[in-house]
């Protein structure tokens, strides 16, 4: 159990570092998928079975495929990769390290929260999470469907070709549309 935790932790940290360090965006996506799978392993270790399944379906199944599709669509590879200057990179690493030090310093005396004595062992199973979702959190659940609708409409609006006449190259697109 503990060995599994440290194994998954090492895998997730190393793959997260590789996401940032990889030159080719496709390698970054693959590393991020490995990272997400190890996080799903953490969820299983925590007995959060529902979340583990949803995480694999939503993140590795949907979001990362979307990332891969966009990278393939835009034909990104190592040669088109924009590079930052060395000074910015060093500053980014130092800032991240200092941020990590600050966070770790905040918990160096322990987090000060004791585990409760009475414990419900069914937390994290589909039944317990579903009951909570459809009773206590029913309104946010319904509202999130509106969020999805607006995100879908927004993505379609952003993604479709701009057919309005451009201020610089005026006329051509409009005439073609008129003839059609």
């Amino acid at each position: 159990m503990q060995i599994l935790f440290y194994l998954f932790a090492a895998v997730s940290i190393l793959s997260a570092l590789f996401v940032v360090a990889a030159k080719n965006p496709v390698n970054s996506v693959i590393a991020l998928i490995v990272c997400f799978l190890s996080i799903a392993g953490h969820y299983i270790l925590l007995n959060a079975q529902f979340l583990a399944v949803v995480h694999v379906i939503v993140y590795t199944g949907a979001i990362m495929v979307l990332f891969l599709f966009v990278i393939m669509l835009l034909n990104l590879n190592k040669s088109t990769e924009p590079q930052k200057s060395m000074a910015t990179r060093i500053a980014a690493v130092i800032a991240g390290g200092l941020f990590l030090l600050t966070l770790l310093g905040a918990i160096k005396d322990g987090i000060g929260i004791a585990d409760p004595d009475v414990y419900d062992g069914s937390v994290g199973l589909v039944k317990s999470v579903g009951t909570s979702l459809f009773t206590e959190y029913l309104l946010p659940f319904e509202v999130s469907s509106v969020l999805f609708l607006s995100a879908m409409i927004g993505a379609v609006m952003l993604g479709k070709k701009d057919t309005s006449p451009q201020p610089l190259s005026s006329g051509e697109g409009q005439n073609a549309a008129d003839r059609a």
Partner: peptide
């Protein structure tokens, strides 16, 4: 922290 440093480290919007 890795995610935050990475957001400053890279210029590719997808990354």
């Amino acid at each position: 922290s890795i995610g935050m440093a990475g957001a400053m480290f890279r210029r590719n919007t997808i990354i």
